[in-house]
Simulated assay, not measured.
Amino acid sequence: MKVLIADDSPVLVTALRKLLEQSGYEVVAAMDGLEAVQCFYQENPDLVLLDIQMPKLHGYVVCRLLKEDPASRHIPVLILTGRDSAEDRYWGNRSGADGYLTKESMGDELLDAIQSALASRALSDMGRVEPLPQSLDESDVLSRVCEVLDRKLFEATIVNDIVGVGVRAMDLEATVAEALNIIRRILDFEAGAVVLPNERRLVVRFEKAISEGDFDEFRSLSALRCRQFTTADVTIDDLSVSFTPGFDESEMIDSASGIEDKGWPSFAVAPLWSRGEVVGVLVLGSRREGAFSDATDRTLRTIEPHVASVVDSARHYQKLLEQEARSSLSSLFE
């Protein structure tokens, strides 16, 4: 097993190298953040020990670069630093690090953390192909930094728009419609929906007219994905369908022979977690092969908690409206 040590202290690197080599690890070292990224892609280590405060590139930036790359995000990164404030630990977690250790943890505690991280990696590495070494110069690394910063700004903008939906009191269909409108700006899909397992309900919108057969298949796939993420035994037969406002079912779902069945070769899914449970499942479908990619999955992971929050709020708001309506009806007969 190969470990990359990224730290600008030659004394600490020497001590770590001795400790790890005595424990059977192969060690490579980098003395600054830029060299750490270059060394990572050249050497393909099994684990990274990363300092925070380094020349050229901050440790948090290095960690974020590695964790944003689908080819390297599975490699454990343990932050090993002399800084131990709550703020530092928070940013370590937010940068994607797999663990946070202080430099007082040298010795058995560090070795245990390395073994634990490598064991966790082994469980997710089944069938994974080892990437080829890459030679990156300084401009290549800085270009990747700029890409990550651009993407983070882009994601923050979308998240802000989604959070804005939650501050407006709307019923469930209107909330889902607003959320899907925002998601549609960044992801190209032909069908979008939220499955609500507790209510056994599918709130859906289509971007193009589809066949009745494709409509039924979309419902079936949505019910299947819902069962995968929840304990609710939702089937196509008991999944009621409601459409987002402005949707004309008679125009969008063709029951005649004018539109052929194409199926949904591309299907993206994100469970919506709120208050410790899956309150819904976001499903996106495209009839184009290969419409969704690793970037799609990354975007869905970013927006999922915020979509979950606004959908859960809309669910509770809808229940309040229904309770008030029932209460008003009851008062008429008193």
Rank of each mutant, 00 (worst) to 15 (best):
S266A: 14
Y90M: 13
L49E: 09
I52T: 01
L272H: 04
E104W: 00
T14A: 11
S143F: 09
G166Q: 07
A223I: 10
R168E: 15
G99N: 03
S293K: 12
I114P: 10
G246I: 03
T302M: 12
L300F: 13
A291D: 07
E322L: 13
N44A: 05
Q134W: 07
E212R: 10
S222G: 04
Q134M: 13
F333D: 07
D140A: 15
Y90A: 14
I52H: 00
I162F: 10
K67C: 10
P55Y: 04
D161R: 14
Q318D: 13
L136S: 09
P76V: 13
V141Q: 08
P245C: 08
V307H: 00
V48L: 07
R94C: 07
S328P: 00
R326D: 11
V203L: 08
R275C: 01
A291V: 06
S220P: 00
V159N: 05
E26F: 01
I303M: 10
E190R: 15
D108A: 12
A179M: 13
V279Y: 11
G59Y: 06
V148C: 07
L172T: 01
L80Y: 15
I303A: 07
R205D: 14
S274K: 08
G276H: 03
R205W: 07
E304Y: 00
K262W: 00
V159P: 09
D88F: 12
D237N: 15
Y60Q: 02
A113P: 05
P10K: 07
G33Q: 01
A117S: 15
N44H: 03
G192L: 08
S240I: 04
V311Q: 07
Y25N: 06
I75F: 06
A291Y: 12
L101W: 02
Q228N: 12
H316A: 13
F40W: 05
L149S: 05
C146T: 13
E155W: 03
T102M: 02
D7H: 11
S255V: 10
G127K: 11
M54D: 07
S330F: 02
R287I: 01
T302Q: 12
D254L: 04
R225F: 13
D214W: 12
A122Q: 14
T157D: 14
V269Q: 11
L180G: 04
D238S: 01
R144T: 01
T175D: 04
D248K: 14
I162C: 11
G166L: 05
N93K: 14
P45V: 12
G59L: 05
